[in-house]
Amino acid sequence: MIRLGYPVVGVADLTVAAAFWTAALDLAESPEWARDSWRTLVRQTDGERVLGLMLSDSAPEQYPRIHLDLLVDTTAEQETEVERLIGLGAQRVDWDSYPPDPDFVVLADPDGNVFCVVDLSRAPSGS
């Protein structure tokens, strides 16, 4: 039976990427499969694998077709988390594709990989 795994992010510097993502998401590096070109990040609470980091020579995509969404429950939490992530090494992205009154903020990790911080209180309700 096939199963969906976890996302893998290509990075130029595993040490910097692991430090950023473990601090950003309160994860831990797992020794499982750790090598010069790979890190597995797990939840500290239960050890579940949630993110892979793979050494990559390719440049990040400006408009990636797949990206990570980090979810928060309120606008205040979104503002706080965006500033915390910037303090950890993320950068604001000059995103020219924002819709009117967006519920998300686009950032890039220290490697330039784009991700979003989404305020679920402002997300469309689907009604």
Score class of each variant (00 low, 15 high):
residue 38 W to Y: 13
residue 104 F to A: 05
residue 126 G to R: 09
residue 86 I to Q: 09
residue 108 A to H: 03
residue 66 I to L: 09
residue 15 T to H: 07
residue 61 E to M: 10
residue 14 L to R: 04
residue 104 F to K: 03
residue 92 R to H: 15
residue 117 V to Y: 06
residue 80 T to V: 15
residue 28 A to G: 10
residue 25 L to S: 05
residue 48 E to V: 14
residue 12 A to M: 08
residue 32 E to Q: 14
residue 30 S to F: 02
residue 85 L to V: 01
residue 74 T to P: 10
residue 24 A to E: 02
residue 101 D to A: 15
residue 57 D to S: 10
residue 13 D to A: 04
residue 79 E to Q: 14
residue 122 R to E: 11
residue 56 S to D: 14
residue 74 T to A: 12
residue 32 E to V: 13
residue 97 S to L: 09
residue 124 P to V: 14
residue 36 D to Q: 03
residue 48 E to N: 11
residue 1 M to V: 04
residue 111 D to G: 06
residue 80 T to D: 15
residue 39 R to I: 00
residue 99 P to C: 12
residue 45 T to D: 15
residue 87 G to S: 05
residue 11 V to I: 00
residue 3 R to K: 11
residue 104 F to N: 08
residue 86 I to N: 07
residue 117 V to P: 02
residue 9 V to E: 05
residue 94 D to A: 14
residue 8 V to H: 07
residue 81 E to R: 09
residue 78 Q to T: 03
residue 59 A to G: 02
residue 104 F to R: 07
residue 42 V to F: 12
residue 3 R to M: 08
residue 77 E to G: 03
residue 14 L to G: 04
residue 14 L to K: 00
residue 74 T to M: 11
residue 77 E to Q: 14
residue 80 T to W: 12
residue 77 E to H: 13
residue 113 N to G: 06
residue 106 V to T: 12
residue 28 A to P: 01
residue 40 T to K: 10
residue 11 V to S: 00
residue 41 L to Q: 01
residue 74 T to C: 05
residue 40 T to V: 13
residue 7 P to V: 02
residue 75 T to E: 06
